[in-house]
């Protein structure tokens, strides 16, 4: 529906404004570097430093360590991951009980996945149960996880989602974020945030103006204003 009072900015006018904007190449390079670093593309970040002369905002060696932890969780080697995190910075797990619990929970899940029932029970009682007493949320999650043992066909049980690959990815992403935070680095890259901001500001403008929008971020095509 069209309101007659809506201001219209033509494509020509808008394109002129776009070309008046000053964008610094170095800033765009930094944005790309931030993406590579945060998402853990360490080799690409190193090469980008050489090809563009952009300095990464954190020591690239720490990305390698962080990615090693992430990969360990993703492939189910949780014990290995915990050891690596502690090598990196023991405070990360000390100050983050929820993350530690989730890692231990993941370890339990992996034991169950591998059919090590006795070991799993022992681990749950010794390591996880005391934590469940401290925190109601932990207890519920522990109960849910142990419930895996009660079903013959775990793939078709109500808690089967715990065995899904997405559970590993969730834990991996949590530990990734914690390491970044411990390095005083934002846990998300800035680029997606800018895309959110663009979506938001375009929506705001829509209420008052008709102007050329960008609807598809991958092509960055300007759409003609609806007149």
């Amino acid at each position: 529906m069209q309101t007659t009072s809506k201001k219209v900015i033509t494509r020509d006018e808008w394109e002129k404004r776009l070309s008046d904007v000053k964008v610094r190449k170095q800033d765009m390079n930094k944005l790309v570097m931030n993406f590579l670093v945060t998402e853990g593309y360490v080799e690409a970040a190193e090469k980008f430093r050489m090809e563009s002369g952009t300095e990464p905002e954190i020591d690239l060696a720490t990305i390698t360590d962080r990615m090693a932890v992430k990969k360990a969780v993703q492939s189910g080697n949780v014990e290995d991951a915990i050891e690596k995190v502690n090598d990196l910075n023991p405070e990360i797990l000390d100050t983050n009980p929820q993350l530690f619990f989730h890692l231990q929970q993941q370890r339990l899940i992996e034991l169950i996945r591998n059919g090590k029932v006795e070991e799993a029970l022992e681990f749950a009682q010794e390591e996880l149960a005391p934590r469940g007493e401290e925190n109601r949320g932990f207890l519920e999650e522990l109960e849910r996880t142990v419930a895996l043992l009660a079903f013959e066909d775990v793939n078709n049980c109500p808690v089967g989602d715990l065995l899904d690959i997405s559970q590993r990815l969730k834990t991996a992403s949590e530990v990734n974020a914690a390491i970044l935070t411990s390095q005083s680095h934002e846990k998300d890259p800035k680029l997606p945030t800018l895309l959110k901001l663009l979506t938001w500001v375009q929506n705001q403008l829509d209420e008052k103006v008709s102007y050329p929008r960008i609807n598809d971020f991958s092509t960055a095509m300007l759409e003609d204003p609806a007149v």
Binding site: V21, M28, L194, L197, I214
Partner: peptide
Amino acid sequence: YSSLEILIRQLTASFLERRSL
């Protein structure tokens, strides 16, 4: 312009228009 640059220009111009409104 790379698509990144176009998006940043759009973002900047949109914010300026919002401010002027």
